[in-house]
Design a protein around this nucleic acid. Sequence first.
DNA 1: TTAAGTGTATTATATCAAATAAAACACTTA
DNA 2: TAAGTGTTTTATTTGATATAATACACTTAA
Lengths: 129, 129
Amino acid sequence: MDSIQVGNFKFQLDLSKPLYEQVLQHIRQAIARGDVLLGTKLPSVRDLAQQLKLNPNTVMRAYQELDRDHLTETRRGQGTFITSDSETVEQVKKALAREAVIAFVSSMKNLGINRSTTESLLKEVTWHE
Amino acid sequence: MDSIQVGNFKFQLDLSKPLYEQVLQHIRQAIARGDVLLGTKLPSVRDLAQQLKLNPNTVMRAYQELDRDHLTETRRGQGTFITSDSETVEQVKKALAREAVIAFVSSMKNLGINRSTTESLLKEVTWHE
DNA sequence: TTAAGTGTATTATATCAAATAAAACACTTA
DNA sequence: TAAGTGTTTTATTTGATATAATACACTTAA
């Protein structure tokens, strides 16, 4: 597995991408998925850093990006809290989904694969949900 | 545009990813797309490096990865040639397509988006081909 | 034979983003 | 006041990427 559970979050870190980016993605996806209650507090910067064996600065960089997207709201001295606005979450989720679709279509087009073939390939994939 | 045409290849380089990787992708996709005649010679390492304003070592790294996938065959003293085996090309193309599909499905699942919604989102995209 | 054009290898250096480290500062709460 | 928050700053380390310069090995055609 090599995954670390912290509160409601499960982290899988590797060296394929920047660590701060992976932390960001994990939390963002958990929020989008609805895995965590809106309005709740994230682990403190120092806390999460210690559990993931990362530098606090690395975790903070992830938290600041979440703030920028308004997925979290930081209250100095209190902590970083997940937004309570489900509308914001929905918007971010849609934006991320759209990005993924665009990137995928672009990949397929770069390979010279058309829409209908792409749809067929997608149907062939087993989709455990 | 900021793109450079070299023979049948069009290169679009930026700083978002390693240069050798971008060179590799451009050539690999052109072959997969059928944009180039099988069996033909790629630009020489020094030649392409000069035209793209890259170091020869950077270009060579891309060429060596193409060789590893058997998309090209290098003959010392002669140059690097695109494989004549259309079967190999087809296999690589399928592998790349499969990779893209897997990555896409994974992204959508990470966002908590199911198959049917994914298919809908895909249909919404205009697909200029 | 030779010269020019190929790929290949080596060694050194430069560059840059990412990550760490340590310390101090600012605010909130109990 | 103390403990727990986020924040900022400065310095340093690390590793992949890219460049540079040079030499070597092979092929082809003049």
